[in-house]
Design a protein around this nucleic acid. Structure first.
Lengths: 196, 196, 196, 196
DNA sequence: GATGAATGAGATTTCATTCAT
DNA sequence: AATGAATGAAATCTCATTCAT
């Protein structure tokens, strides 16, 4: 029996568990997401989670890592491929919403985790804001954007994007693509240099 | 002993407890805010809380009600007194930040509660968005504002405002008044009718 | 209702719990002495222990403190009242065995705790040896005792005394008073100055 | 594949595992010595231990047997070779300390096991005391030793010896050979017939 | 012979709630 | 009105043991 097979099984189990964990966290919130509930959804015993991830913190970290990697992998190429900061900012917003459409549970879980454990994952949240700031600086240097405080605007853009998942539970048939275009229009108006 | 005195003591006790609860929730988060911790800060026994509020949910509801009433009482007059929707939106944003400056604990507690119990206080969150939407409709009817989806913009405005308390823990010496002006400028650009 | 009464109830409960804990530890060993088992013997819920002692470590510490205080209170006056180091050493040994006879569970529990958590209560064990060393120094200065390494002899005396509780479970009708005399004789021969 | 080879491999595996188990037990105590920890130190899977020893109790028993056999093999010849009980007792003590110097982990593990499982290995402890008693009877019959209770003295000698390993963790550079001489002197004085 | 994934029991700890005084 | 002792449930973590491969 090849060791790759062993690793494959291991990886599959880990993926299954992080998926289930993300699902439960997205559904009931991090506070109510007990290991028993996650294990029950995965159809395994609670000990399995400790076995694979050490403890609950390890599982949470794995959920974060998975989601963050998937999000970056999808979004970053779309953003850097744009020919202007204006298009870059639009791509940042719409690709975020697109990721949300394809992986709603992962994203909700990620936000839950960031919002809850303010101490541990604060850096991840700060990094996400910094990423937005980079695009804003880009546009200010090319003259596309006006002269605003990038921290305030970047924080607001992230907040506006991150507010969407909370609506998914309440609003039926939310068109995320259309929502993304509206958001992109909104912040295009808010950031472009005012001609006069 | 007159019954008014009773009521007065009763009200004072309730106010003391909701204040302490808000303080603890703002400090350690709703998840770690145990009844014992709240009672300890208030210098009373845990039973007192159950006595006055029935159970923890009752206390949380009281914290929400108090904070929301205080916020509305401060902000609403400032908003409706404005002579234009543009100024009204600015007043909404800056008065929000002003409330945050004067009552940081109450506001943080309120946001914690809304974010945690997704099912229970969703209506309060929806109401807060609707309140913003009213101002936006006002501006669209007067022709001050452009033709955008008010739900998207209102949600973004609330999200941008509500993102601020989380920064208070990390950023030192955050000038909330200046931050409010920046936010108001941002959404003024984003909402005004585009002249061409 | 006077507060002393409250304190009295509290103290009585604490004493009951430390007694039960000492009993369980003496019976099944510290490793198997779960809080559930202790609570069961006390006829209370497990939460009561946490309520009174914070956590298991707090309970263990209380057991140690109680036993150590009782032991010192009984033994120290008997030792210092002696007119010579030879009689002092004998009093130290026999009063130890006497305490063992009157409080076998407390003593066994104390030894279990010292032997197990080598890190935490090592100082208590070291102190007990130092106490013996003091008597040995006393005798060396008066010329009653020979010129031996007091650390070796003190450690051996303590070990010989502390080995007794383990026998209580196996040997029936062990006469602790007679045992104490034998031990005292043994170490009197081992310590006295050799006259030739 | 010859069966002797099987047996040889089998024996080597068992020896490796008992050594690792003794090492872990000596280091962290029997309570914290989990199968996983022992398997990790041996560089094998946990299942191997169950395979070879049935269960944890079987492994512990093997550790005991190995250590006890090694101790007897080293000490017994040295004791019985002596020409007098006085020298025999000295040899018993010093060879014990010598074994401790050469195999500190095995001895610590053995003591840990005896102290913990009061019921199971009590006989081993009793046997060790009986072995000392034999030497004491020898000396009483030859007239070298006085007329004391051999059980009390034998228990004390064993306790004095067994107290040494606990010091190894706390005292730096403990000279076990010198300690052994001091101990031997101590119990020579305590046991010899008093001339008058 | 060996692996390591999985189980299930047991232990501690936290906490909202209840209730006699 | 208030106290605080007590309960019982829920959650996490550890670990010996089992078993399919």
């Amino acid at each position: 029996m090849p060791s790759e097979n062993e690793t494959f099984i291991e990886a599959a189990r880990r993926a299954q568990l992080t998926d289930c964990a993300a699902g439960v966290i997205a559904e009931v919130g991090l506070g109510k997401a007990s290991m028993a509930r996650i294990a029950e959804r995965a159809g395994v015993s609670v000990g399995v989670i400790s076995y694979h991830f050490g403890n609950k913190a390890g599982l949470i970290a794995a959920v974060m890592t998975d989601a963050a990697q998937a999000a970056v992998a999808m979004m970053e190429p779309l953003i850097v491929a744009q020919s202007s900061a204006t298009l870059g900012l639009r791509a940042l917003i719409t690709s975020n919403l697109e990721f949300m459409r394809l992986h709603p549970e992962r994203l909700r879980a990620m936000l839950e985790i960031i919002q809850h454990d303010n101490g541990l994952y604060a850096e991840q949240g700060a990094q996400a804001i910094t990423d937005v700031q980079k695009v804003l600086h880009w546009g200010q240097q090319t003259g596309e954007f006006g002269d605003f405080d990038t921290r305030v605007v970047a924080t607001s853009i992230r907040a506006a994007i991150d507010a969407v998942p909370a609506m998914l539970g309440h609003v039926e048939d939310l068109d995320l693509t259309a929502y993304g275009e509206q958001l992109a229009d909104l912040f295009e108006r808010a950031t472009r240099k005012e001609t006069r």
